[in-house]
Amino acid sequence: MTIKEAQNEIIDEFALFDEWMDKYEHIIELGKDLPIIKSEHKTEENLIKGCQSRVWLHADLSNNNILFTADSDAIITKGIIALVIRVFSNHTPKEIAESELFFIDQIGLKEHLSPTRSNGLLAMVKQIKMYSIAFQAKA
């Protein structure tokens, strides 16, 4: 599945929810289900510090695909992270670098990527792009 297809799949999934509560409950469930980042990767170096919540992001290159693992101390943030990782993880650096992130806006969670929220999500998305550029340069 391409990055674009993965995002469209999420948009379809969220189209089922009429109420913000259902949407948030789903995100909270995703947050609870997010595979736990290995504790040795929950380092200060991998920490993206927001004013509201903290996010850890780790990247590994395997067979020219980047595998992301992440965590947050806030569950809603963590749920959105689960979606972002589902979209970007296991793609080549080139695919990630050239991709556009549009699903968050489309599923009505735009405010979570706003710089005013400072929950670390926006910084995490930037960091994902940085990794893709860095891994491309290494290749």
């Binding site: 913000w20 509201q52 809603i76």
Partner: peptide, 11 residues
């Protein structure tokens, strides 16, 4: 987490 509480009650 406090931010989760804040986000939900903002809704």
């Amino acid at each position: 987490h406090p931010s989760d509480i804040g986000m939900i009650i903002d809704k």
